[in-house]
Simulated scan of single mutants.
Amino acid sequence: MAKDDFGFEFDLKGFTESLTKIEKQVLPTAQAGFLNGIAFGARRSLLAYAEKNIEGSPNAWTKRGFVVKKATAANPEYSVEILPEQAKYMQYLVNGGERRVGDPGATKYDVRVDSADETKNRFGNSPRHYLSRISKKAKREKDKRGKLAARRDKLRASGKSVAAATWGAQKKSTDSGIFFGKIRNTRGYWQRPEQRGGKLKLLVRFADAAKYDASFKWTTPSPAT
């Protein structure tokens, strides 16, 4: 027990013990808050860097993959990470490498290399499910053309005109048709010309593999506060 010059008594030992208890409770929490501020600043810097260095800018799904694993009072460590699903795609930008059939971003049969400019959104990517839509459309067309060919064979065999069983007679006025094939060493989905003798248009190009150079420097930006 201590006594000051004015006759006021106070428990110095108890006060010291209380202060130590407060320090143990408050300081780790304050430290975690400070570290998390740095972490979220680093995340903002990485997103800003991604906007400048990813061709066409990252889309909303990619941005959601940049997350902060926050520090706590019990564990004063933080990290800025990419979620596993987004990391599967980002790995080619961060580490470089070769994407092959079956890898993330590829199909079971091919690796999509590029798409027609008019099919891309402002991020430089084809709209969601675009490939699935044109694949199904090409399959429907192939089936229909097969049936029309069989129908023409029957008409010819019976000496009748085949005009009504041609693709031109069946298709919509604005639909020239699409198909999957290899033209001049380029494999992909092609749009048929509207007029006979016209030019084919490549919609999606495929290859067996696609090589990537490391272009996204994960440690380059400094935290922005």
Rank of each mutant, 00 (worst) to 15 (best):
I82V: 15
K88W: 00
Y92K: 07
S222R: 14
L27R: 08
F40D: 00
A30S: 04
P127K: 02
Y130A: 03
H129E: 12
D117V: 14
T16I: 14
G168Y: 08
L47G: 02
K147C: 04
D114S: 14
A224F: 13
T119S: 09
K88L: 08
S132L: 11
A42I: 00
A138G: 10
G56P: 11
L83T: 15
P193H: 06
V80F: 13
G56F: 14
R100C: 01
S79P: 04
R187D: 02
K52S: 06
G7I: 14
N95C: 10
S215W: 07
K136E: 00
R43V: 01
A2F: 07
T119K: 09
E9Y: 08
N59I: 06
G188P: 05
Y78C: 11
K144I: 05
L200C: 05
F34G: 02
S158V: 03
T29C: 05
A224C: 04
F15Y: 07
Q195S: 12
T62S: 09
R99P: 00
A164I: 13
R128F: 11
G168W: 06
Q31T: 06
F6Y: 07
K70D: 06
I54W: 12
S79M: 09
R151Q: 12
K182Y: 01
V26G: 00
G146R: 12
S215H: 09
D143T: 14
N95T: 06
A87H: 06
N95G: 11
A163H: 05
K217R: 15
G198P: 13
S215V: 11
L148P: 02
H129K: 13
I82E: 03
T186E: 13
S57V: 04
R64M: 14
A106I: 05
T16C: 14
Y89W: 11
V101H: 05
K3L: 13
A39K: 02
I183F: 15
E17H: 03
A224S: 13
I38W: 07
L83Y: 10
K52M: 09
V26E: 08
Y89M: 15
V67T: 10
Y212K: 12
E77S: 07
S215I: 10
A138R: 01
G97W: 05
A163W: 05
K160C: 08
R145Q: 14
N36G: 09
K172S: 11
K108T: 03
V113T: 10
S173P: 08
R192L: 07
D117L: 13
R128Q: 12
A48R: 09
K137F: 11
L47R: 03
N59C: 10
E77R: 11
I183M: 15
R100Y: 00
F40S: 00
P127G: 04
Q86I: 13
S18I: 00
F40Y: 10
P221T: 01
T62K: 07
R140M: 11
A149W: 12
L155D: 00
K13C: 00
Y49T: 01
G181N: 08
F206M: 06
A87G: 08
K108A: 08
T72C: 10
N125D: 08
Y212E: 07
T20A: 12
